[in-house]
Design a binder for these strands. Structure first.
Lengths: 343, 343
DNA sequence: CTGTTAGCGCGTTCAC
DNA sequence: GTGAACGCGCTAACAG
């Protein structure tokens, strides 16, 4: 018997289903003997009460908010998650926060499909993942409101995203203002396997800054690869081996910046004396290691995203857009003035 | 009408419930006209189909694994979470990971109660929280298997925990071996508000090391307070203001160690030249900032905990205990030899 | 104290 | 193509 029900339990215990239900909820008093009979029947059959049946019967609606993103292990995710939790705790509704980690890009769509087919979530927070038109329609038709925390959204109302192009510009500008002229970009390869254009946007910002300062573009200063510290490390080694290595690196994320810094140190050079490094995100780590970066208020974006979604879920006809604070340049110790004169 | 059902939709559309169900699942072909009638009825009534009823009807069992802990924002949580996710992804079952953050200790029990009463989770991972006998019985009676990731568990099978007393010993021993004689302990006040004795156990290890090395105990070297960087910062300021300040500090967590280091630097002293600092946990951050610490394999503990729980959930009569690897001393740059001779 | 029965909201057979 | 009836597993209200 694969899935015994209370009827099975009742039968083997020689009692009615009501009694079984009673011992399960120890509501009214049940005589010790029958209690024991029921309990042993439960044990023998390996009975486990069905959650859904129970919820249907009691009328208790359990609402799940799914947070789906790749790299659940990445620091930037943690920051966002923190914000989501905060927003959820703030208003005391009983929504559950369910985590979905997209381990392989191919499975993303499949996971989304399962969610709507099996009705697992009532609302969805989608971060660092693109939402295609088909997927948008799928969710909309299924009546699952969603908020994206990435920048593949155009001007949609349900999107919380920083101006990544501007952020890229700000980062590059900072280095250029410090006198750097050989400025490299280390970022994710695009098109990204998950379909979001973050790296490309920051890269465009970088390009426009170069242009504005009249710096010629050198393709060998642009190093693209998979996301992560290790790749950034390798790319930096490559940069340092160039005949004319860069004097400054703009890494598209703090984690990648860390990879750069480690590679630089291993090459016997110092940050920022020999090479300046600026990151992007301002995750918790960056404060501790003194990384200059562009703060994109990750925690707050999680907070606002959750707030918006809750708003859509609880007051669908009065949804108000949420605005992320502007990006901020945070200057710490990893960037420094550079002048050819002193070399 | 607060919660319209398919019956309501059917009535206002002038069709049967079967038809409504069909357009909802676009299974069999429905004539365009009736389709439109149903769709508009759905729109008018603001109908949303019930998740639970659907799941009950289709027989799709959705299993939730809850992870409950305080401080969801803390790095040590993230490490564990990563391990949990990994274990979940490893075996391809459709369990959902649901996060529960205990924001206030008073609410913990209430949350647990809600979980069993409302049948929200099928299994529970409890970290950094104590499980009282009552709570154990509550969960057991409700048939909710759980695994604890803290050390308030004795020798229970369903517990993944490092030997914190030993860990405290190892940390203190390291400092003593380096020649330190004025060794401070910075940790959480105990009894902890969440009921887990971690700080006390590490403190006991610290004590036994002192004793073994014949170092007299100085109560002013033991600084206890709330968990967190800021408190550790304050406690360290206090330590430094002592007539005979310590030459080494054992912080019960890496985050607290960071607080210590920051306070030491702000006092114009250097780590490790003037004062050595050792932490506990070995979170990701520690590697980057070069903190000497005791590695407690947090990620792996999350992994093993999840694995054990899945085991309990899927093969209840063949549960095998999981063993955490032993604690490891990880020596990095924040501790140094100390000898009064050179002062 | 305990057995019986009517729903909970939806999917899915059947006949029509 | 469409409507009516039954069942999913459980709770709760009602009789006994």
């Amino acid at each position: 018997m694969p899935n015994p029900t209370i009827y099975d339990v009742a039968r083997t215990a020689g009692v009615g289903v009501g009694t079984v239900s009673r011992v399960l909820n120890n509501s009214t008093r049940v005589s010790p003997e029958t209690q024991e009979k029921v309990l042993s029947a439960i044990r023998v059959l390996g009975f486990r009460r069905s959650k859904v049946a129970r919820q249907l019967s009691t009328g208790i609606q359990h609402r799940n908010i799914g947070a789906i993103m790749p790299f659940i292990t990445h620091p930037s995710f943690v920051e966002r998650l923190r914000g989501m939790q905060l927003a959820l705790n703030h208003q005391d509704n009983d929504f559950n926060l369910v985590l979905y980690n997209v381990s392989e890009p191919e499975r993303y769509h499949e996971q989304l499909l399962a969610m709507v087919e099996q009705a697992t979530v009532d609302g969805l927070l989608i971060a660092t993942l693109n939402v295609s038109d088909d997927q948008r329609d799928l969710l909309t038709q299924a009546g699952i409101p969603f908020v994206t925390l990435s920048d593949a959204c155009g001007e949609a109302l349900n999107c919380i995203s920083p101006d990544n192009r501007h952020g890229g510009y700000v980062a590059a500008q900072h280095l250029l203002e410090l006198g750097h002229r050989r400025v490299a970009y280390v970022g994710d390869a695009f098109p990204n396997i998950y379909g979001f254009p973050t790296s490309e946007l920051r890269y465009e910002g970088y390009l426009s800054a170069l242009k504005e300062y009249g710096i010629p573009y050198h393709s060998e200063y642009v190093c693209l690869g998979a996301h992560g510290e290790d790749t950034a490390h390798r790319l930096t080694e490559h940069l340092l081996a160039l005949p004319e290595p860069p004097t400054a690196i703009f890494a598209m994320s703090d984690i990648q910046a860390v990879g750069c810094i480690l590679a630089i140190r291993e090459a016997g050079l110092r940050v920022p004396e020999d090479i300046s490094v600026i990151g992007f995100d301002d995750v918790q780590l960056s404060r501790y290691i003194g990384l200059t970066t562009v703060r994109q208020h990750l925690e707050q974006s999680g907070y606002l995203g959750m707030q918006l979604l809750l708003n859509m879920l609880t007051a669908p006809d009065n949804v108000v857009a949420r605005q992320l604070p502007p990006l901020e340049l945070v200057v710490r110790g990893s960037t420094q003035h550079w002048s050819a004169l002193f070399r």
